[in-house]
Write a protein that binds this DNA or RNA. Structure first.
Lengths: 240, 240
DNA sequence: CGTAGCCTTGAAGGTGATCAATGTTTGTGG
DNA sequence: CCACAAACATTGATCACCTTCAAGGCTACG
């Protein structure tokens, strides 16, 4: 049924140079890499497609190669909360692999056409868990995710405008580090709202304002930051 | 200068049975434990005393034995934000140990008289980092801390009353699992506010209300939850 | 070409922040 | 052991920020 699943090792090898750049796999020789990817499959996702669903049995995990995935949890009320934006080089669901018979704690949904390398749990158990270096790198991925959540907490009392500014800057840094400030992933106002725990309307009001002031521009669902400086300014100002 | 530092191995041994109960050290034999505690010192803290300060060079880390510590970061504005409440069995600052020459990312402040086992960074590097089982346990501590932060995020849009309810329940569960609902650590309304990103006044108004309704009682700075059920109810209600 | 998802704008209302003033408890030094 | 300072708790009044509700338009995609 998953027809867009490609398993040839040849095809995975195409990505090896790319993959070995990721901090997660820094300083690993090719042989070790190959072992880590035992049984791995390339898995493409279309925009808005679910890669994992909360509650499903966690039998595999992924390393993001292209595009982006949002990790989503739902409130009892049925509202979505975006917990993390996963970029190329990020691992998705790797951390539940160590538990036997666990379920995915979040859903992963593609933002724009995306690509992951999907790895069976067995490979994690027999190779990833055994490799101290990988364990260390996974820990530092996890650590930086926690720091990110903490950072957000610091902005809890800030006005919404500052929260949005912070999120946008953080995403620009993450997804278009050297580029000119165009976010390469489709990011809707609703997603921003879901990530910040705000209402769509409020997000729209603030970003419309920014558009008028020529601080940002939006075409399609792609946000372009015209003036990074003025956004950073917003954050600094409220701090006095 | 740290005169309340006691280094006799004998004294540490007193705690061995206790220590080996912690999930962090589950299934480790005594010999391995002793190695993990090379150069360790018992360190007592008085109420409100700083164990670590943000920005200080991270030369040692701790395992909490008694009492509690709040991990605090500051906003640019100078407000405090409590990022985590560390209970016995928690590790403090263990995660920065892997980086050379790092600084503490948070301050750790004792809540009530508390006790930690303070371990030099060298011991981490030579023994903790080498032990795959410890690495795994540390990872799962870190993981649960991240999940906690995520859970808080789910309550972002909830009214303050629900946030407080959630925090209190979570703390009761953590610190007085089998007890009768008396939080064994002094917890001020300000600390609750700092943890939730709310104002003290708002927290007070809600908790005064609870006191009148006999849901909680406060003596000293110790909070007693009289009716866990009604607090849980508050959380459920808003979810419909 | 109709539906679904997204964006937009306005009006009304509420939750919680801020400010100010005061009481209470805890800790400390003479 | 008392006195004073510091930290904590409380209460009320006011007001800003954001949410909610409602209604409408735009664009993409089957």
């Amino acid at each position: 049924m998953p027809s867009n699943q490609v398993s040839t090792e040849k095809q995975i090898e195409t990505f090896f140079t790319e993959i070995s750049q990721f901090p997660l796999f820094k300083d690993l020789d090719k042989q070790r890499l190959q072992r880590l990817f035992t049984g791995a499959k390339l898995q493409a996702s279309k925009h808005r497609q679910n890669l994992y669903k909360v509650g499903d049995q966690a039998k595999k995990f992924s390393v993001v190669l292209r595009g982006a995935y949002k990790l989503v949890r739902s409130t009892p009320k049925g509202e979505d909360v975006i917990v993390y934006f996963a970029a190329p080089g990020d691992a998705i669901a790797a951390l539940v692999m160590s538990q036997d018979n666990a379920n995915y704690p979040v859903s992963a949904v593609a933002m724009g056409p995306s690509l992951v390398l999907e790895i069976p749990r067995e490979t994690y158990v027999s190779f990833w868990a055994q490799d101290p270096q990988i364990a260390m790198h996974l820990q530092s991925l996890l650590y930086s995710r926690m720091i990110l959540l903490q950072d957000e907490k610091l902005f809890n009392k800030s006005p919404l405008e500052v929260k949005i500014a912070h999120l946008i800057l953080q995403l620009v840094e993450k997804y278009s580090a050297e580029s000119d400030g165009i976010l390469p992933i489709p990011l809707t106002r609703r997603e921003i709202a879901d990530s910040l725990g705000a209402s769509v309307e409020s997000v729209i009001r603030i970003m419309s304002d920014w558009s008028h002031k020529k601080i940002i521009a939006t075409s399609d669902q792609h946000i372009e930051v015209l003036e990074t400086g003025r956004i950073a300014e917003l954050i600094r100002r409220q701090a006095q």
